[in-house]
Simulated assay, not measured.
Amino acid sequence: MKYSKRMAMVKPSAIRELHQLEHDPEVISFCGGYPDASLFPVENLREMYLSVISMDSMAFQYTHSQGDATLRQQIADRMRSEGVACDADSIVILQGAQQGLDFAGKMFIDEGDTVLVEAPTFLGALIAFNAYEPRYIGIPMDSHGVDPLALEATLQQESGIKFLYMIPDFQNPAGVTLSLERRRMLVDLANRYDFYIVEDSPYRDMRYSGPSVASIKSFDTQGRVIFLGSFSKSLVPGMRLGWAVANKEIVQNFAQLKQAADTQCSTINMKVASAYLKTFDHNRHVENIVKHYRHKRDVMMNTIADTFPNAVAYTRPDGGMFTWLTFPDGFDADQFLRSTLLPRAKVAYVPGIHFFGDTRHLPINNARLSFSACTDDAIVEGVRRMGLVLSSHLS
């Protein structure tokens, strides 16, 4: 084959491969971070599609690569309500926030460039960045997010860092939230050490407990933060609508990359999303799904507390879709899944090894569980089975 060298860096997603397990009706899978399809506002969207199609023939036409102007203004209004200084020209509509990750990689990374990531970090970001062959440095985290002292120590030792990628709200996979003070500190470090921050926040609306924390972008005074948002979790993923908020030079660069990649997002989908936001109370819809997911989180947390051995630690997320398990030192979570948990309990999780960009000191004793798409009964039964097998295995 005459493939480019870049294709050697394009690897299949471990989570997608594990999804194949879901075809086995006996397997309870906690792998995917899918939203619960029963929460999709199907009737409202059907009404909006029919309205847009019948009343606006331009819904079938090409539009600007930066995205529908009305939708961009609506997003800008929502972002400003959260303290982010922006307008419609500061926003580009994306094919999901994932496209923003690809564009960030394409725009900033040359082969061998250094990218900072949380340890652990989002697998989808690694997949997006890997094609551009960066060198990753993982920054350790605790219950309050990235450790700023460890970050500054890295910045003092390394030069030429392009950007720090992070999910500050209910992080995927660890479930932790970056504290307010650390968000301020990160922006200060970016200003002093001359790097960008890619703030990926698809779960921001999904807060179940605790006070809301201002976005990193809200503290940005030098245009160093690129905020990525998404309708995939708060509305529906199938419309593939996300957005970036950034300084206008970066927005224009993103729009040019988009023109090369796919010309634009679906005109119909953008107009329907705009009509939906104008016609229905999206905040009330978010409140409803938050109530639903809060219950699922609590079911999983309570069942873990009741059934897991004390040797297994876990995070209690204030939002999002995930909890992060830490097994005892030396416990191989990947081997345990394949050799013991799947054959004996018919339960699946994502081993933690897949979430680390910096593989020099790769921990093997972690796993990610998602509660978002499972029924209550499946959560209870799956966690109970895990607890029994873990108790036997660790005794």
Rank of each mutant, 00 (worst) to 15 (best):
84 V>H: 08
36 D>F: 08
357 G>W: 09
370 S>W: 05
345 A>D: 02
10 V>P: 03
314 Y>P: 13
69 A>I: 15
159 S>I: 13
14 A>Y: 07
212 S>V: 04
107 M>A: 15
367 A>W: 11
56 D>P: 03
200 D>W: 13
304 I>W: 01
316 R>H: 09
49 Y>F: 14
107 M>N: 14
261 A>V: 15
367 A>K: 08
262 D>A: 15
233 K>E: 01
296 K>Y: 03
252 Q>N: 09
9 M>P: 00
391 S>I: 10
272 V>R: 02
261 A>Y: 15
83 G>K: 10
211 P>N: 05
374 C>Y: 02
245 V>H: 04
126 L>Q: 02
74 Q>R: 04
386 M>L: 12
273 A>Y: 01
46 R>Y: 11
328 P>I: 01
361 H>C: 12
343 P>R: 13
162 K>M: 07
122 F>V: 13
197 I>N: 00
105 G>L: 09
227 F>K: 02
349 Y>A: 06
257 L>K: 08
285 H>Q: 13
246 A>Y: 04
151 L>A: 00
357 G>H: 10
198 V>T: 06
394 L>P: 14
329 D>H: 01
343 P>C: 09
83 G>M: 08
343 P>F: 07
39 L>M: 15
107 M>E: 12
177 T>I: 07
391 S>P: 06
204 R>K: 12
347 V>F: 04
376 D>N: 14
56 D>Q: 06
98 Q>H: 13
175 G>M: 09
73 Q>I: 04
55 M>G: 09
372 S>V: 13
87 D>A: 01
328 P>W: 03
21 L>T: 03
189 L>I: 05
162 K>D: 07
270 M>E: 15
